[in-house]
Measured scan of single mutants.
Amino acid sequence: MQRVNMIMAESPGLITICLLGYLLSAECTVFLDHENANKILNRPKRYNSGKLEEFVQGNLERECMEEKCSFEEAREVFENTERTTEFWKQYVDGDQCESNPCLNGGSCKDDINSYECWCPFGFEGKNCELDVTCNIKNGRCEQFCKNSADNKVVCSCTEGYRLAENQKSCEPAVPFPCGRVSVSQTSKLTRAETVFPDVDYVNSTEAETILDNITQSTQSFNDFTRVVGGEDAKPGQFPWQVVLNGKVDAFCGGSIVNEKWIVTAAHCVETGVKITVVAGEHNIEETEHTEQKRNVIRIIPHHNYNAAINKYNHDIALLELDEPLVLNSYVTPICIADKEYTNIFLKFGSGYVSGWGRVFHKGRSALVLQYLRVPLVDRATCLRSTKFTIYNNMFCAGFHEGGRDSCQGDSGGPHVTEVEGTSFLTGIISWGEECAMKGKYGIYTKVSRYVNWIKEKTKLT
């Protein structure tokens, strides 16, 4: 034993070699072989497995989906700052455009905790909710729209109204504003409101030439003092309507412009014939205590009207009353817009006519005020429907199939267009061939041609 100890002390290297040989010859039971080890760690190889990531292109799944990435790591994937920024906006807080917040056709661009709407022409605001041009839906104005110097929408209202708090709607500024039905039992019968379409306001006024200088022999019209197929109006439903009495009662109609003036057809009036105007009328054979009678003290036909040349060209006249009318729910003026808007309103496509005229061709006159909704007829169809001249200051309205029309005794009465609950004068009943005849239409004086003249002559002093 002493000898062994001496050998170990003198030859430590020998001992180490012996131990190493023993270990190498022993069977290893701690580690699995290569094949079995792979069965336990069965993990798919990654895209760049075996390579240094710093030297390969980034992978979106590896960089940002398996674990949260930084902007720089995302930049490695896209290799483009702009594309990385677009991805980053949604990656950080989701897609803010998912709810489609942009209105009126706006395009949404996502941002971090926010979004941006790219608005089409005519709109602005956070969600493109603000109209900035009158060309689109009248700028959301209830009545009139004008573009300011910086191309912003400025709404306005006709006389007797003021802008509401929203700067879009119009509200009454006087007790009985024009064009409004205020009798409670008839307010439910107000005709369907007309909503502004998209309009090209630059070209809204037709490029028409008034044929002022045409000389033409007097034409022989049949029954051209021209509501057939209409309905009984309720008291106060058309408070701007008046009836004219002269040699015979209810020979023509008219509309209240203001307390002192009536507008009617020029062919209705004769110099030297006494005319009485009755406002607030409903049943011409009954006294309903809503009527107001006034005498006409002055007749002003349009300066281009000449019955000797043509009885229905420039067929418009103004009547001055001896005493002002007292405005109330049964006696209310009709609204008159400017030339541009009167023309736009007419193009809405349908209007209402009213009167006490004959209820059928050569038949009896109506006792109760009649009204009828009539569609506008395109000019080409209008011209083809008659052998008589249709001037540019006239328009056609009615039904091709016949059966409904204005008729004798309705002449001078109103053709009105309702705009968001307020009625505007767009025409004056003038003439036609018979009444409600198939293929024939009622012919009306186009008020847009005469609004400046009306307003100039009827100013209240």
Rank of each mutant, 00 (worst) to 15 (best):
N5Q: 12
D111W: 09
F345I: 13
F78N: 15
K137C: 04
K455T: 08
T186Y: 09
V248A: 04
V269T: 04
R449Q: 15
V359D: 09
K89R: 11
Y441R: 03
R43L: 10
T84L: 06
A366H: 09
W431T: 04
E433V: 05
N166K: 02
T381W: 05
S220C: 05
C396G: 01
G253W: 10
V374F: 02
V248R: 13
C178T: 00
C145A: 03
T342A: 06
R83I: 10
T461V: 11
D131Q: 08
V228E: 09
E320F: 01
C141K: 01
N48M: 12
V374M: 10
S204M: 12
N283V: 07
L163C: 02
E124M: 14
G357N: 05
H282D: 03
R180P: 02
V296H: 01
G355N: 08
A317E: 01
E340A: 14
G58I: 07
R384V: 09
K137Q: 10
K137G: 14
S184Y: 10
R358A: 14
H361P: 15
F78W: 09
N328W: 01
T186R: 10
L376F: 11
A307R: 12
N213I: 07
Q216K: 05
D93K: 10
I344M: 09
P175K: 12
Y312T: 03
Y391C: 15
Q219T: 09
V277R: 01
S99D: 10
E98V: 08
E159I: 07
H302N: 04
K347V: 03
T458A: 06
G351T: 02
T209G: 12
G236F: 04
I316S: 01
T389V: 08
N151Q: 09
E72M: 12
E340K: 07
G94Q: 09
V419L: 07
N222V: 07
G349R: 07
Q2T: 08
Q143L: 00
I275M: 08
L60H: 09
F399L: 14
E129W: 02
C97N: 02
I429Y: 11
C128V: 02
E67G: 09
G402H: 05
Y201S: 09
K146A: 11
G272I: 02
S148C: 07
I309P: 04
T422V: 08
Y201M: 14
Y201G: 12
E82G: 15
L23T: 03
K39D: 15
H34N: 14
G13C: 13
R404C: 15
D315S: 03
E61F: 05
H415I: 03
K438Y: 08
C170W: 01
K109V: 11
T194G: 12
V174N: 05
G413L: 07
N113M: 09
I40Y: 15
V30W: 15
R75A: 08
D315A: 02
T225Y: 12
N203W: 06
I136H: 14
K51R: 09
K459H: 12
E285G: 07
N42Q: 14
T445F: 04
R373V: 07
D223Q: 12
L327S: 03
V154T: 09
V263H: 01
V227L: 08
K68W: 08
V359I: 09
T287M: 14
N59T: 14
V419S: 05
V353K: 05
T381M: 11
I7T: 09
G355V: 11
L244I: 06
G50M: 10
S350K: 10
S184C: 05
L346R: 05
L325W: 04
V447N: 01
G403M: 12
K339R: 15
E456F: 08
L319T: 01
F31G: 13
P172H: 05
I275S: 03
T209D: 11
E67M: 13
L369Y: 09
S217R: 07
T81K: 14
K247C: 03
V447M: 10
E288V: 05
E10F: 10
P12N: 10
G94Y: 05
G125R: 02
Q241E: 03
W118V: 14
K459I: 10
D378N: 11
C145L: 01
G21H: 05
E73A: 06
F345C: 02
C18A: 11
C268L: 01
S385E: 10
W118G: 04
I214H: 08
G280H: 01
T426G: 00
K457D: 02
V242I: 05
R62I: 13
K362L: 07
K459N: 13
E72V: 15
K293A: 06
T422P: 01
G254H: 01
D110L: 15
W118F: 08
N304L: 14
I284D: 06
R226Q: 08
G442C: 14
V181Y: 07
I336E: 00
T290V: 05
L425H: 02
G160L: 00
G280W: 02
F31P: 06
Y352I: 12
Y341K: 08
G50D: 15
S255W: 00
S187F: 11
P44V: 10
P301V: 12
K146I: 13
W118I: 08
Y161L: 02
P12L: 15
Y22P: 02
T158R: 01
Q219M: 13
E73M: 03
A37L: 05
K146C: 04
C117I: 00
S217W: 08
T264S: 05
C119H: 01
S448W: 02
E208F: 06
R3K: 08
E129F: 02
K45A: 14
G246Q: 04
F87G: 15
A317N: 00
N283Y: 09
N310M: 05
G403T: 11
L32T: 10
L346P: 02
L189I: 15
C119E: 02
V269M: 08
A397M: 02
A250C: 06
G432K: 11
A250E: 05
L60P: 15
I309T: 07
E72I: 15
Y391L: 11
R379H: 10
G229S: 11
N100D: 10
N283C: 05
F424C: 00
T218Y: 09
N245R: 03
L319S: 00
Y312C: 04
I112N: 14
G349Q: 06
T84W: 04
C145H: 01
T290R: 10
C335F: 00
N48D: 15
I428Q: 03
V154Y: 11
I344A: 15
L60R: 06
Y444W: 01
E420G: 15
E35Y: 09
S220R: 05
E129P: 03
R75P: 08
T276V: 06
C178I: 00
S411W: 14
N313S: 11
E79L: 04
P301T: 09
E171A: 11
N42C: 04
E208I: 13
G13P: 08
N151W: 06
L425V: 01
L425S: 01
L369A: 14
A436R: 10
A233W: 07
Y22S: 09
G421W: 03
G106D: 02
E270P: 04
T271D: 03
V273P: 02
